[in-house]
Amino acid sequence: MWGSRRDGDDGPVTCIACGDEVPRDDAREYDKHGNRWERTDKQFEYLCKPCDRACCHQPRKGLESMLVDLGAGEVSREEFLARFHDATVEAQEHSD
């Protein structure tokens, strides 16, 4: 329908989830800002097709800022997971 993306960069890419290097045609483009159509001056990341299929494809508005607020990459894994769990339970309780 839209045609294929051709910007001359058909080389291998690295999956941000598993670290495997795959041909660009065997990967899905990932834009952490959620707007992959605005391409000017962007560097995209990639997921291999198996990792892309394993991902949840639900809307993620506010997710990036929530991860920053919870200390992703700054606190231990255990502390982050506890914070994330508490935040998602609290969000669910407020939406009910």
Rank of each mutant, 00 (worst) to 15 (best):
E78K: 13
E38L: 13
D10I: 01
C48N: 11
A17T: 08
G19M: 04
E21M: 07
A54F: 00
G71A: 00
W2I: 07
W2V: 06
R53Q: 14
H33A: 07
E45R: 14
H85P: 01
A17Q: 05
V13Q: 12
D31F: 07
V89M: 14
F84V: 05
Q43G: 06
D86W: 05
E79L: 04
H94K: 15
E93L: 14
D52A: 11
G8C: 01
P50N: 06
R53V: 12
N35L: 04
A91M: 11
E21W: 02
G71P: 00
Y30H: 15
W37I: 00
T40L: 14
F80H: 04
A54G: 02
E78T: 14
I16Q: 08
V22F: 00
D10K: 08
A87R: 15
D31R: 01
A82G: 10
D69C: 06
G62F: 03
N35Y: 08
A54R: 03
N35K: 08
S95V: 04
V22N: 02
G34L: 01
E93N: 12
E78P: 08
E21D: 11
A72L: 07
R28T: 10
D10A: 10
C56I: 11
C48Y: 01
G8T: 07
E90W: 03
P50R: 02
